[in-house]
Amino acid sequence: MPLLRNNAFVVDTWTHLGLEDKLPDGGNVVLPFQRLKNEWESLAKFPGQLGVLLNNSDHAGELEHFLPHLALVILPFPAFTDGRAYSIARQIRLAGYRAELRATGNLLPDQFQYMQQVGFTSFDVSDRFPLSMWQSAAKQMSLAYQRGLYRRTGETEVWTERHMEAAPWEEQPHAG
């Protein structure tokens, strides 16, 4: 499955481990949330970067105090109609997490823009859709009414634009 980041297919440099897989000596490692919780004492000393795979039935609140130590959070979409991860993504971003947030599972280009707006920055996409389709899907809408979401160049937040003189959204969570 290609990994899409910044509108290009890139190589995934992370090692994805299950509950039982042996931890390597270093590098970038993604673990299930369960394992992160259970083995935190030893993991805290891990020399490489850590990431987590959080299921959409897990509570983002429990992840909060691990967030400063993580360089990747992966949220799965078991079905493209299952929208829980949109809210989990927002919770994680609102909690101050600034590193990579990855969507995996059943993703459609027509949802791509929404996912970026709630804070996802990378995407495990199926090779059914060519890169060009993802690139054009990324700019289907140039306007949005909601405030406090992730906006890229060329995207306008209507209410903010209408009331420029008002106080800005304090936690404008811009990526990068």
Binding site: G83, S87, Y114, Q117, V118, A144, Y145, L149
Partner: peptide, 13 residues
């Protein structure tokens, strides 16, 4: 109406 239109978080409830 405006706030809920194409709300990215709440379109797959």
């Amino acid at each position: 109406r405006q706030w809920s239109s194409l709300h990215p978080e709440f379109s797959y409830l």
